[in-house]
């Protein structure tokens, strides 16, 4: 069935409410942030209206560039690890019985109820010297004495993967469960091993879903600021930590706004680039 293009104003009515919500909850706050990023810091208050590029100039330094680069690298790593873990898991989950699937989905949803603070505290306990996982390894005779695994990059990455994994599974699940089972049957009939059928049929068939999940987790991880602060050293702090520091503790709202604008633009540019590369590859095939 072919849809008629909208002609009258009434034809646009169904998109009026989403457009209004987009304006209220995205366009207005983001425009305010952009405006504030050009304002001047007022030591007596938050800021005073002006038009200056000083905040952006201050941001364009090796230090903030390094922090931005680390934030993006961390978010990319979290997204890749999450998809590498969640995709085979979700695939195996869809092969299980309906009852097992429901139990797992409820368990995964319950993990979502944990706040970032509880996740950070739990992992800081698990990585500590006195109460951590290394005590179990010592008991098992695998280590000589317990040691702290935090603060460090591994601790930050693990906790962020823990936080994003439920979202990854829940985004992948509907697409994987709807995948036509005859595709896999055809591959198996033609002599492909289960692993080869998974890699050569299932993964390419769900390429767009995988890409969308990677982008979602990347954007989600880019905004994380509590876990790097709890589990990392200052060199593992993301740009979000510095934005919070500037906005709340230094009372420098214009500079915080400039950093936030830069972070949003960078993430939009990366997402756009990923989508562009994906669409070009799709046109070629």
């Amino acid at each position: 069935m072919r849809r008629e293009p909208p002609r009258t104003a009434a034809d646009y009515a169904p998109i009026a409410f989403p457009a209004l919500m987009l304006v209220i909850f995205f366009v207005v706050p983001f425009s305010t942030m952009i405006a504030v990023s050009f304002f001047q810091r007022d030591p007596a208050g938050f800021y005073s209206p002006a038009f200056t590029f000083a905040n952006y100039e201050r941001f364009l330094s090796a230090f903030f560039g390094g922090v931005l680069g680390f934030s993006i690298m961390l978010a990319v790593m979290v997204a890749i690890v999450c998809v590498l873990v969640a995709f085979p898991f979700t695939w195996l989950l869809t092969q299980a019985s309906r009852r097992v699937q429901i139990v797992w989905l409820v368990a995964i949803l319950s993990v979502l109820s944990l706040s970032e603070v509880i996740i950070g505290f739990a992992w800081s306990t698990l990585f500590s010297r006195t109460a951590g996982i290394t005590n179990l390894l010592v008991m098992a005779g695998l280590m000589a004495e317990p040691q702290a695994l935090m603060p460090g990059f591994g601790a930050v990455l693990t906790a962020m993967v823990y936080q994003a994994l439920p979202y990854t599974v829940l985004v992948l699940y509907p697409a994987i469960v709807r995948l036509d089972p005859t595709l896999l049957e055809a591959a198996r009939t033609l002599g492909a091993s289960p692993m080869r059928a998974f890699l050569n049929v299932v993964v390419p068939a769900l390429r767009n879903t995988i890409m969308a999940t990677l982008i979602m987790v990347f954007v989600f991880a880019l905004g994380s600021y509590l876990l790097p602060q709890i589990l990392g050293r200052p060199q593992h702090w993301t740009l979000s930590v510095l934005i919070t520091d500037q906005a709340i503790y230094q009372s420098n709202m214009p500079f915080a706004a400039a950093m936030a604008v830069f972070l949003v633009l960078m993430s939009l540019a990366l997402v756009g680039l990923t989508l562009m590369v994906g669409s070009q590859r799709e046109q070629r095939t």
Binding site: V85, F89, L92, L93, W104, A107, I108, V111, L114, I118, I119, F121, A122, W123, T125, L126, A131, G132, I133, Y162, L165, P166
Partner: peptide, 15 residues
């Protein structure tokens, strides 16, 4: 399933 369950439940068990 066991590895994912340990990963998801581990921190909660320790807490």
């Amino acid at each position: 399933f066991l590895l994912v369950a340990l990963f998801l439940a581990g921190p909660l068990i320790v807490v």
